[in-house]
Design a protein around this nucleic acid. Structure first.
Length: 615
RNA sequence: GGGGUCGUAGUUCAGCCCGGUUAGAACGCCGGCCUGUCACGUCGGAAGUCGUGGGUUCAAAUCCCAUCGGCCCCGCCA
């Protein structure tokens, strides 16, 4: 076939409307449309096509009495053909109205049809989902997105088809609304968007870097930024006063459902802020995002918890506050217990924490056993449980628990018959996170009615350092540029582990959405922190010389925050996978199934880069 | 690096435990009929490297080992 008969680079006519945007008020209009064939119902004499574009679908009717040629042509089209249609919008007869379709009150009587491109049969249905979706009404904000059952492998392999599906269309447009609201918000508050380089230098601390060889500097490498942290600090020294950016970040670590190797951050920094100022700006940003994207009004300010309070009450530095089941310290009640395991850990200075699962929920023995096993394998701690039956307890440990312990627990936890009590003893710093994990498991399993809630909160005053068993040294809880609390500066050297930082994390429903801090703007203090982290002056200058130098030239106090755009989009879209809010995500093995990246490269390219592959 | 789970027509899955006829179903696809369907209906048809490799066995989708890939989790990662 002659190529000019199969390839028409220009459309035969201009579109007047989006298919999915047509409504009863358009009745009587002549329209020109284009879109994908979403479904075909061929009655021999009469052909119905569902035509889909990004706004939705509209039914097009081909009647031989109106146009014999168009009718004949319509019989040959198939799913996902891209076609152009001209016709008249007509109101449907009452008995043929389709209430399940926003455009169901009207249809387009076709006068002409052009196939702009045929389609091979798609490997999975594009159309199924929109019908299911339209019948069940508007998608819930946080409900699960089951959609048409298609394996994710296929969806990623044919991502362009997956993106045609209404769910992905909706998610990407919600994400767009988030980014637009973000830009508007920061712009209105005097923040300047500045781009920072993607090719930059490796910085120690944190994750593995993605490296890029430099052709013109053989043997040297750029690193893709894990975040623009240092650059934004330098921008403050540079006098930008208020900066923000939607920044691409790269970390070469193993993937999770909520972790991709490249992701976007809303990166913010300002001059002379108090933590309050940053938190207020960010609360305003979230309020704007939820208003613009979903029409939801958030109540601000968000709850604020100190790190210590979060750990004490929830056993987590990113508490899911949609449900209660808070931890209680029962160390005193168990001070004289006869239960050996607990007595032993108390003797070693340990603590006892407990939580209760309300009697309306009854875990099975199997679920209990799994929790015990998981707590042991993840934290190396023994989880004990007991069922409350009046003043007695039932379960493996029940007979070893004395009256004092039982009444102490009953008082602290307000135990009622039927409740299940969970208990862990050991070093306090291990017990709280372990029980926090149990709390989360139980909450996800049993407290599901609270799913739709939006429980934003701030966790502030993180410890400045923690001790790394692996590296046998102090490491920064946040990053080494985080400023210590001013009243603790004095104690910094004496007892660094007791120091806290001017830091704040924003958490929604147990998911950390972002974190930031007031930074160190003094090169001597910065050097002192490096020293505590085990970095010599020489090493510090080698790696961060440019920062130390910048700080020495009248660097103003500054601070900021970084927020995960992808995670925010996940929560706004009500999905539990980052892959559903990114156009072209990678698999757990960091592969792009559509393009096949990463690929091998030919030897000439490697040679040019002075790189040798050793496998 | 480790644990779990899945892999069978284009798709979603059954069959696998307890090995044995020609590996089934639904949707999709192809062809016929059909002027009010919208999950159209109806009649007919095609469609399989049972992920891959090896082993056990007279015989393997089924049992064993290895390996590849998707997903979830731990480690890792702010």
């Amino acid at each position: 076939m002659a190529i000019e008969r199969t390839f028409q680079p220009l459309p035969p006519w201009q579109r007047t409307d989006y298919c999915g945007a047509l409504r009863a008020s358009d009745a009587g209009r002549q329209v020109a449309l284009w879109g994908w064939v979403s479904g075909r119902r061929d009655h021999g004499g009469l052909v119905f096509l569902d035509l889909r574009d990004r706004e939705g679908i509209v039914q097009v009717v081909f009647n031989p009495e109106r146009s014999a040629a168009a009718h004949e042509h319509a019989r040959t089209v198939r799913a996902e053909y891209f076609v152009a249609v001209k016709g008249e919008v007509v109101r449907r007869a009452p008995n043929t109205v389709n209430a399940a379709l926003p455009s169901g009150g009207i249809e387009v009587m076709a006068d002409a049809l052009e196939v702009l491109n045929a389609s091979a049969p798609p490997p999975f249905p594009i159309a199924d989902e929109e019908i299911a979706g339209s019948q069940s009404g508007a998608m819930s904000l946080s409900g699960s997105q089951s959609g048409a059952m298609v394996s994710e492998e296929l969806r990623l392999r044919y991502r362009y088809l997956d993106l045609r599906r209404p769910r992905m269309q909706r998610n990407l447009r919600l994400r767009h609304a988030i980014v637009r609201a973000t830009r508007a918000h920061f712009d209105e508050h005097g923040f300047v968007e500045v781009e920072t380089p993607i090719l930059w230098r490796p910085t120690p601390e944190g994750a593995r870097d993605y490296l890029v060889p430099s052709r013109v500097n053989p043997g040297r490498f750029y690193a893709l930024p894990q975040s623009p942290q240092l650059l934004k600090q330098v921008l403050m020294v540079g006098g930008l006063d208020r900066y923000y950016q939607i920044a691409k970040c790269f970390r070469d670590e193993d993937l999770r459902a909520n972790r991709q190797p490249e992701f976007s951050q809303i990166d913010v920094e300002m001059t002379c802020p108090r933590p309050e100022d940053i938190m207020t700006i960010v609360e305003g940003m979230f309020a704007r995002i939820y208003r613009d994207a979903l029409g939801v009004t958030l109540s601000v300010p968000f709850t604020r918890l100190t790190y210590e309070e979060a750990m004490e009450r929830f056993g987590s530095d990113k508490p899911d506050a949609r449900f209660g089941m808070e931890l209680k310290n029962l160390t005193d009640a168990f001070a004289k217990t006869e239960l050996n395991v607990i007595r032993r850990s108390l003797a070693e200075g340990g603590a006892v924490y407990a939580l209760k699962l309300s009697g309306e929920f009854q875990p099975t023995r199997r679920e209990l056993d799994e929790l015990v096993a998981q707590t042991h394998s993840r934290f190396g701690l023994g989880l004990s449980w007991a069922k409350v039956a009046g003043s007695e307890w039932q379960g493996p440990i029940a007979k070893h628990i004395g009256h004092t312990e039982r009444s102490g627990a009953a008082l602290a936890l307000e135990l009622k018959a039927g409740d299940t009590l969970f208990l862990i003893a050991g070093a306090r710093d291990k017990v709280r996170p372990a029980l926090g994990d149990v709390r989360l498991q139980l909450g996800t399993r049993f407290a599901r009615p609270a799913r739709h809630l939006l429980r934003f909160l701030w966790v502030v005053n993180f410890p400045l350092f923690e001790y790394s068993e692996q590296e046998k040294r102090l490491t920064s809880v946040n990053h080494p540029f985080t400023a210590p609390c001013p009243e603790e500066l004095e104690a910094l050297e004496r007892d660094p582990l007791s120091a806290h930082s001017l830091s704040y994390d924003v958490v929604l429903n147990g998911e950390e959405l972002g974190g930031g801090s007031i930074r160190i703007h003094n090169s001597e203090v910065q050097l002192k922190i490096f020293e505590l982290l085990g970095l010599s002056r020489e090493q510090a200058v080698d790696k961060f010389g440019f920062l130390l130098e910048a700080l020495s030239y009248g660097a103003p106090p500054h601070g900021g925050i970084a927020l995960g755009v992808d995670r925010i989009a996940m929560l706004v879209c009500g999905t539990d996978s980052l892959r559903d809010v990114m156009a072209f995500p990678k698999t757990q093995r960091a592969v792009d199934l559509m393009s096949g990246a990463p690929t091998e490269v030919d030897s000439a390219q490697l040679k040019e880069l002075s790189v040798k592959v050793v496998l």
